[in-house]
Design a protein around this nucleic acid. Structure first.
Lengths: 138, 138
DNA sequence: CTAAATAGGACCAAATGGGTACGATATGCT
DNA sequence: AGCATATCGTACCCATTTGGTCCTATTTAG
């Protein structure tokens, strides 16, 4: 329903907490407690974020996760893309396979809407999530 | 995946075709042929659009569907809302029920993003879908 | 009266999302 | 060396959503 998954929401909350003390290495249980995301889900989510390069992991005892870039360099769009893959409102705005292929005049319009949304998501970085929501200009 | 359903896509294509000759009453099989949406799905979709008031129906022989308003008065946001219900990116931006209730500082940010997206979708009307995609300003 | 339409469901199969579990591997500490 | 603490990868399950079909009213033109 034009909605992003809970996991994306979890990812945002987790990363937002990590951004409050970048550099620091947090383990899963700490993050789970701080964010009230269940430990298994936090773990699952962090693994994906690590695989996608938004965070870096340190294994072994006293290991954990750390942001791989400055919070200002990580946007909501990055998070969504990491968890859900390429952002594409409709099938036809991504890979081929739209069943209405050639005789569809509205595909370019979808693409415009699509990039508008992606831009909105790019505007907002983790760093800005720390402050109050005063991004009405985005 | 931040994606709208195929049915919403079908709805847009169907309505777009109807907008090319507003006032005219089209039946399902005509619309299905014109848009290459299968007749059963076209029927199912048009029923919803009629229930939601975007189009009006005439029953009986030589019946069919007709736009209930001028194409310029029907936006993509209307279509999405008709098919998928209220637009809300995350659970917490709609009804209560966000599991991270009170201690979530990023909810207001989601709401900002959410309304940005809704605005994008409101900007584009059926009438504008007829022309080329030159809505870069939206 | 009949044919052509929509209305409104029920229904089903496939995909997706949310969540859990488990074995493997890496690392710090004693 | 050995153990406790971590992440890694993946497999798995269940509930929900989606995509799609079909059938039976009901309505209306001719």
């Amino acid at each position: 329903m034009l909605r992003l998954s809970k996991q994306t929401d979890y990812a945002t909350v987790l990363l937002s907490h990590m951004a409050s003390a970048p550099q620091r290495v947090c383990n899963v249980s700490e993050l789970a407690q701080a964010t009230h995301v269940s430990a298994p889900m936090a773990s699952k989510t962090l693994k994906v974020l690590a695989r996608e390069g938004l965070i870096e992991s340190e294994r072994g005892a006293s290991g954990g996760y750390r942001l791989s870039r400055d919070p200002s360099q990580i946007s909501i769009a990055d998070i969504v893309r990491a968890i859900e893959g390429p952002i594409a409102l409709t099938q036809c705005s991504s890979h081929e396979g739209c069943s209405l292929q050639s005789h569809c005049q509205i595909r370019p319009h979808w693409q415009v809407i699509n990039s508008t949304i992606i831009n909105s998501l790019k505007q907002l970085s983790l760093a800005e999530l720390q402050g109050p929501a005063s991004h009405l200009g985005l």
